[in-house]
Computed example of a mutant assay.
Amino acid sequence: MAKKGAAKAGDQAADGGDQTSEKKSGGGFVGLAILAVGAMTSSFATVYVLASDPPTGPACPVVETGPSVEPIAQQDQSYVELQDILITIGSEPATRYLKMKVSIVTGNGSTGMVEKAEPVLIDAFTNYLRSVELSDFENPDFYAHMREQLSRRSELVLGGGVSQGVLITEFLLR
Rank of each mutant, 00 (worst) to 15 (best):
V166C: 03
D53L: 12
A73L: 13
V69D: 04
Q74E: 07
L156E: 15
S103L: 07
G57N: 06
M100D: 01
L173S: 03
I85R: 03
I168K: 00
I85S: 01
G160V: 10
E92F: 12
P140C: 02
L167K: 05
T65F: 10
L167I: 12
T88I: 11
S25G: 10
V166K: 04
T95G: 15
P140A: 04
L86K: 14
F137W: 09
I85P: 02
P71R: 06
G57K: 07
Y48D: 01
D136H: 09
S21W: 03
D84H: 08
Q83C: 04
G5C: 08
V162F: 06
G90V: 07
Q12H: 11
D141H: 08
A144H: 03
Q164C: 04
M40D: 03
N108A: 12
D11I: 11
G57A: 11
F29G: 08
S25K: 14
I89F: 03
I104E: 03
T46V: 12
S91G: 13
I104D: 02
M146C: 06
R96K: 13
R174N: 15
C60Q: 12
L172W: 08
P119K: 11
L156I: 14
L172H: 09
L167T: 02
R152N: 09
F44T: 05
Q19N: 13
G165Y: 00
E81K: 10
V162H: 02
V102T: 07
L173K: 05
V30L: 07
F29T: 05
I168Q: 00
Q75W: 06
Q83M: 12
L129Q: 06
A9F: 07
G26D: 05
P140E: 01
Y79W: 11
L158K: 06
S21T: 14
N127R: 15
A59C: 00
V30M: 03
S78T: 04
A39C: 11
G31H: 04
G16A: 15
P93C: 07
E118F: 09
S68L: 11
L82W: 00
T46R: 08
R153K: 14
K116Q: 15
V47Y: 11
D11T: 06
L156Q: 15
E115G: 12
S91C: 06
S21A: 15
G38A: 13
T56W: 03
K116F: 14
Y128A: 09
K99R: 11
D18T: 07
L50K: 14
T169R: 09
L82D: 03
K24F: 00
S21G: 08
P119Q: 11
Q149C: 03
P55N: 07
G159I: 12
S25H: 11
P61L: 04
E138P: 00
G90H: 04
I122H: 07
Q149M: 13
F171G: 04
A33T: 02
Q19P: 01
A39L: 15
P67K: 08
V157D: 05
Q74L: 09
G160C: 02
I89M: 10
A7M: 10
P54S: 09
V69S: 08
